[in-house]
């Protein structure tokens, strides 16, 4: 059956070639990327200088941020949010403030559950930590996005929160602070407490920030905004 062997050979070659050409070669090219010890910053004269003693970039996530990252995966946030800043000619990500520079492969080398994203039904979250740094805002937004962003298409995540009677528990310091007169606020004597998962998720979001310098990707704006 000469014909059968030729067919099998062709079938084999098709997939092997695309595997070698696209996957093996990129493993080869990117597999060796390491965290950067160099850090570049603009000095007063507007020139790039190396700063000593800076931490490694990208930085490792803390334990609880790492847990928050898992929550991000488990809740399927990646369906509507991306985490990549694209080049200027392909959109206005920089103008929108999704980040102060474009994303590069090195930004992601520590991640084993990549959430690069493919849809932007919601905004990009590459640097959401530096755009919105208010813990209460994020918790409120998770509890019910309509409180902070009326008309949002994001689903609420009430199951990440507990409703308790204030008198029952001594410490209600972590309770959500609703804006005055919000229709979503609980009745008097009732508090909404974020679960550990909600706090971890928000901690992860607050840590998302790519506004640091890498040798191949320099933040163009001065960090202080001056």
């Amino acid at each position: 059956m000469k014909h059968f062997s030729i067919l099998l050979f062709g079938i084999f070659i098709v997939l092997t070639s695309s595997f070698l050409g696209l996957i093996s070669s990129s493993l080869n090219q990117l597999g060796g990327l390491k965290q950067s010890t160099e850090s570049l910053e603009l000095d007063d004269a507007g020139e790039l200088v190396l700063v000593d003693g800076d931490p490694l970039y990208p930085m490792k996530l803390s334990g609880s941020s790492e847990q928050g990252h898992m929550e991000y995966v488990k809740l399927g946030c990646v369906n509507c949010h991306s985490q990549q800043v694209r080049r200027e000619e392909l959109g206005n990500d920089l103008q929108r403030g999704f980040g102060q520079r474009v994303s590069v492969p090195r930004d992601f080398i520590l991640q084993s559950n990549m959430v690069l994203g493919y849809s932007r039904l919601g905004p990009d979250l590459s640097s959401v930590g530096s755009r919105k740094s208010d813990l209460n805002w994020h918790l409120m937004h998770l509890y019910n996005p309509q409180i902070t962003s009326p008309g949002s298409l994001m689903p609420p995540f009430p199951f990440l929160f507990e409703t308790i009677k204030i008198s029952e528990v001594a410490a209600t310091s972590g309770a959500l602070e609703f804006p005055e007169g919000s229709p979503y606020a609980p009745e008097n004597g009732i508090a909404i407490i974020p679960s550990r998962r909600a706090v971890a998720l928000v901690e992860y979001l607050l840590n998302l920030d790519i506004n640091y310098n890498l040798p191949e990707a320099v933040v163009t704006k001065n960090d202080t905004g001056e």
């Binding site: 990117l30 597999g31 930004d107 080398i109 991640q111 084993s112």
Partner: peptide, 11 residues
């Protein structure tokens, strides 16, 4: 790790 996963995923 990293974008290599995205490459494998797209493939």
């Amino acid at each position: 790790r990293g974008v290599l996963q995205s490459i494998v995923h797209a493939w």
